[in-house]
């Protein structure tokens, strides 16, 4: 149940920073990126070019994809200098 007018914060502001994370855009995808860890050189170009902050990096190491939000645009695969990412058809 969404809030009634008495419960909403004043002035239509949003108090919770980054709340969009709760809205999952992963189901927009028709193709999904798959990482070949063997090939990956952790250059992180995929991270810097991803429009959806969906490259998971831990301590400078490419760990995979945030599939809950990745929209499957394929920029990461296109820009990967060592072709470590492949776009595959999304299974429904």
């Amino acid at each position: 149940m969404k809030e009634g007018w008495k419960e909403l914060p004043i002035g239509a502001i949003i108090k919770e920073a980054g709340s969009s994370i709760k809205f999952e855009t992963g189901d927009w995808r028709t193709r999904k990126p798959v990482l070949n860890k063997e090939k990956c050189i952790n250059c992180l170009f995929c991270w810097v070019f991803c429009p959806d902050s969906s490259i998971i990096v831990e301590n400078g190491e490419m760990k995979g994809f945030l599939y809950s939000h990745c929209k499957g645009c394929g920029i990461c695969a296109e820009e990967c200098p060592v072709k470590a990412i492949e776009m595959v058809k999304e299974e429904v």
Partner: peptide, 28 residues
Amino acid sequence: LKELSKEKDLFAPGHRACAGCGPAIVMR
């Protein structure tokens, strides 16, 4: 990029930009 990627993105995912959106990359 190794250092930058340690910080939480200040432009969070879950926005409704189209797949492959150039402006969203610019924001990040």
